[in-house]
Design a protein around this nucleic acid. Structure first.
Lengths: 204, 204
DNA sequence: TGACTATACGGACCAAAGGTCCGCTTTTGC
DNA sequence: GCAAAAGCGGACCTTTGGTCCGTATAGTCA
């Protein structure tokens, strides 16, 4: 059995760290203004505890982000339409991208922090490969759409955290405006039936 | 006169630093494995010289990158078709994106280093705004293409340094394959006349 | 050519931040 | 209540970007 129940205080501290880090990242525009020492202090634990629990800075950020993205992932993997499987690709692709956009919009600073870890990130992260595989598969299930490998990368690049943060934060674009723009762009890539301008649902 | 001719040894050292940094960045896959001290040592100068000449790490990387991208910028600003002005947008957009892709392909590590400086980069850099404005203008000059603001961002995101590096380096995609994929994607966004698969010229 | 000054050099030095270590405390199982 | 395992915490280490200032040198003017 590789899993062993952690001690009560360890579990409590883990939650405290997660909560503290969440708060600090939300407060600071620049993710690396949040230091590990600050997080430890805010959580009321020592640095040792923090590093033992999460390995390193990347591990902490990843744990935070995974907690936030879990619901979306579940909805995509096994939820109802339009996110879940069983939705026609031409409808599911925009839905998934929109969900991704909303996720990053709702967790701007955290997402930026996550994509900024390391150098070749976010492309070395496992969750990226999964997302890419998913989008690619859906694209290639669209009749007449050839190889979707690059298009999937490009569509995911359109919702990268720092771009979203730039548009929503620095440029002040509204959530709905961004969602409409993304929907429009996605439709273009998918080969829109007709090219009317700006119309997007209000989910999220 | 805000400009004052630098001393001869200063100019010489500047070139030495640029050359040394170029070599080191080319050699190392991870840009922040190249330290400022290493660059100084390789150039045969002291750290003080290095920081006086370029301000900080970002300044150095930017200077390097600008030297590499100057020809492309000039070709776009005042060169002949298909890059220069006077080219129909539907032809110029793919050409400019292809040139950008090639630039990053030819300077992989350096481009990654540039886009990794700071946190909200590359969107806070002046050259990004210029590129975005250019692409946007061209898109909106295409008949029937509405607001091109987001599409321009998305297209530029498709040639981001770390994505290009991931595809070309880690995944081993060939230069021509990437260029063809990008051309295909761009055509899709522009609203391709018809949707045949894979055909791209061999420029660059 | 020789002196005089502004400019530049260089490496010791500094501070910040991620990460480690180990003696001490708490929880857990009996 | 006890012993051992698990966990804690903060002093400490290391690395790295960036600074400082005494010294050296290029440019200049006589």
């Amino acid at each position: 059995m590789p899993e062993r129940k952690p001690r009560a205080d360890a579990a409590r501290n883990r939650e405290a760290v997660l909560a503290a880090a969440d708060g600090l990242f939300a407060r600071c525009a620049d993710p690396d203004e949040v230091t590990m020492a600050e997080i430890a202090a805010a959580a009321g634990v020592g640095k040792g505890t923090l590093f033992r629990g999460f390995g390193d800075r990347t591990g902490l950020i990843r744990a935070l982000y995974e907690a936030r993205s879990a619901p979306v992932l579940r909805a995509v993997a096994e939820g109802p339409a339009p996110l879940g499987p069983g939705t026609p690709p031409a409808e599911r692709v925009p839905a998934v991208l929109d969900a991704l956009l909303c996720l990053k919009l709702d967790n701007r600073h955290l997402s930026v922090a996550l994509e900024a870890v390391g150098s070749d990130s976010p492309y070395s992260a496992a969750h990226y490969d999964r997302a890419h595989g998913l989008i690619r598969g859906m694209l290639e299930a669209v009749p007449g759409f050839g190889d979707g490998g690059f298009a999937a990368h490009a569509l995911l690049a359109a919702v990268r955290a720092d771009l979203v943060d730039h548009l929503a934060g620095r440029q002040g674009l509204s959530r709905e405006r961004l969602r409409a723009d993304l929907a429009d762009f996605t439709a273009r890539v998918l080969g829109r039936p007709q090219q009317g301008e700006g119309s997007a649902g209000a989910r999220g």
